[in-house]
């Protein structure tokens, strides 16, 4: 596994030690997971839902939104009624 690439994709900063440790551990885990390759699954349909549920909708009705102060109450940084983040250069 290219741990640098995956960590970047996951937006997680890892220090050198972590990288080393994780590489070894994940290597072991991936080796264990390899056992799935023993299975003959070419004709098996993938199963992403375990229940046979289908067509679950809601009606197109407007329901009250949260008050703005509740929306922003947990924000690490807010400006006015907006969340704020480091400027994105465009």
């Amino acid at each position: 596994m290219d741990i640098e690439y995956v960590a970047k994709l996951a937006r997680i900063e890892l220090n050198k030690q972590e990288k080393k440790r994780l590489s070894t551990q994940l290597g072991d885990i991936l080796a264990y997971i390899e056992k799935l390759k023993e299975l003959n699954i070419s004709s098996v349909e993938p199963m992403s839902h375990v229940l046979p549920l289908k067509n679950v909708f809601r009606r197109d009705e407007v329901r009250p939104s949260l008050p703005q102060e509740k929306v922003l109450a947990n924000a690490p940084h807010a400006a006015g009624n907006n969340f704020s983040v480091p400027r994105i250069i465009e």
Binding site: R58, D60, E61, V62, R63, P64, S65, L66, Q68, V71, L72, G80, N81, N82, F83
Partner: peptide, 23 residues
């Protein structure tokens, strides 16, 4: 539509920031 794709918030344009939001 009247409400959003996956929740009941209104999709009306031009409202005060973050006033049409829910969890």
């Amino acid at each position: 539509t009247k409400s959003k794709c996956f929740c009941g918030c209104s999709i009306k344009f031009g409202q005060s920031p973050n006033s049409q939001t829910c969890p």
